[in-house]
């Protein structure tokens, strides 16, 4: 039987160059607090949105740059989304 892989383990396989101190996605926690559905929690394929004591947290390290969070987010202004600067972010070796 195959071992189940956690998302950190999956992301750990990817080649990734982190732009330290320069998050390409920023969230407005004030707006997120008023969100009841919080679909980002399940939809982000890298599970980078987390909920701790009712508050949304987000870590841009590991982001696959897909754009899912930006489109599924029901609260205008909650997510400020751009691509990482050139050469930074994920670099698929297979794709």
């Amino acid at each position: 039987m195959m071992k189940r892989m956690g998302v950190e383990e999956k992301l750990g396989l990817n080649k990734f160059l982190l732009d330290e101190g320069n998050p390409h996605i920023k969230i407005n926690k004030e707006i997120c607090r008023a969100c009841t559905g919080k679909p980002c929690l399940v939809a982000c394929p890298a599970s980078l949105y987390t909920l701790k004591e009712e508050e949304i947290g987000f870590d841009y390290a590991g982001c696959l740059e897909c754009g899912t969070c930006r489109i599924i987010c029901p609260k205008p202004g909650a997510i400020d989304w751009s691509y990482p600067r050139g050469t930074f972010g994920v670099a698929y070796r297979y794709g």
Binding site: M5, K10, L11, L13, N14, P45, A46, L64, C66, G67, T68, I71, V90, Y92, R93, Y94, G95
Partner: peptide, 9 residues
Amino acid sequence: RTLEYSAHL
């Protein structure tokens, strides 16, 4: 053996 995990819209 998994080599890579990717996502795209």
